[in-house]
């Protein structure tokens, strides 16, 4: 049997243990989809697969047990999902045009969760729109608040929702619900002074616990959507590590620009001899030095006034 495995992988299929048998990988940006697409997955699994579906660690689906010869039929059946999830595509009916840049994951976000500072799925979809298709190995995740349920610090780019608390002292009655919530559930940056509350903005992580705790609406959320951008967390063999803070109080436009700039940086600096043309960005930065990365990443980025850029960054993690 002759099969171009490079082409197969780029089409979001997998080379499996079993010769001649593949698995179809379905990306779901932001991890949220209309339930009607589940019956499409079921149909593919039952018609061409082995009747099972795996929910992937990156919030996609993987349908195993598909014969190589059935890939074109699977691609045809996938078309409504690809279209329905608004995935950029080159030729309709031919499946996914790339697989290098991974599905953008997200926690449930503010469509459901009271803690989330924004609609994580919608933002994930907007990121997907500008970065896909792409062969480079990028992992991006979004989480609604500093609880980081989406574990974004294990990604190349981690986006964490923040809210800049707004305080109306005339509505504050000094019940101290916010002070207690901040102390017990967050980072203890609120203090009672003269029966009113003072916040240390430098140490505030923008989790919004004060807003949630306030019974009189004295604390409210800031109008601007702001985020913490963490970078270069990773799993893997050599040096798994948590992402470090890059920019605190950054906006959406800034995040997208930094990610796009990073694609240019990687294109420029990737090891041409990397196995399978795949090298984690973090290792490239380890090689070029952080400063070179920062230069590329922040090129033409307009940051909000209050944004704080961390530089230089040192990563920890386990080294083997």
């Amino acid at each position: 049997m002759d099969m171009n495995t490079k082409a197969l992988k780029k089409n979001a299929f997998r080379v499996t243990k079993q010769r001649g048998v593949t698995a179809s990988r379905i990306r779901v940006p932001g991890g949220h989809l209309e339930a009607k697409y589940l019956s499409v997955l079921q149909e593919i699994a039952e018609k061409y697969g082995n009747g099972t579906v795996h929910i992937t660690s990156r919030q996609g689906f993987e349908i195993p047990g598909i014969l190589f010869e059935n890939m074109p039929y699977v691609n045809e059946l996938l078309q409504p999902i690809i279209q329905g999830l608004n995935i950029n595509q080159k030729t309709p009916g031919q499946g996914y045009p790339a697989a290098g840049t991974r599905n953008v994951t997200a926690c449930i976000g503010n469509r459901v969760c009271p803690y989330a500072c924004y609609d994580t799925t919608a933002f994930a979809q907007r990121i997907e729109k500008v970065i896909f298709p792409n062969d480079l190995h990028f992992k991006i995740a979004l989480t609604g608040c500093p609880n980081d349920c989406a574990k974004v610090r294990m990604h190349d780019f981690g986006i964490m929702g923040m809210t800049e608390p707004q305080y109306d002292k005339d509505r504050c009655i000094n019940c101290e619900a916010c002070v207690k919530a901040c102390k017990k559930k967050s980072v203890n940056v609120l203090k009672t002074v003269n029966y009113k509350v003072e916040r240390y903005p430098d140490r505030c992580i923008g989790c919004g616990e004060c807003v949630l705790a306030c019974p009189t609406g004295a604390w409210t959320r800031g109008e601007k959507k702001l985020y913490r951008l963490t970078i270069m967390g990773r799993t893997g063999k050599k040096n798994p590590r948590l992402g470090e803070d890059f920019v605190k109080w950054i906006d959406e436009a800034g995040i997208i620009k930094i990610i796009l700039n990073t694609y240019d940086y990687v294109t420029q600096h990737i090891d041409p001899a990397a196995p399978g043309g795949k090298e984690h960005i973090g290792y490239i930065i380890d090689r070029t030095g952080f400063e070179e990365f920062r230069k590329w990443a922040l090129r033409d980025v307009q940051l909000p006034k209050m944004a704080e850029v961390s530089t230089p960054i040192y990563w920890q993690g386990v080294k083997y």
Partner: peptide, 12 residues
């Protein structure tokens, strides 16, 4: 946007 949860309103 002045509700306790993000993107919710408050009527005051």
């Amino acid at each position: 946007g002045k509700g306790a949860f993000s993107e919710t309103d408050s009527i005051r």
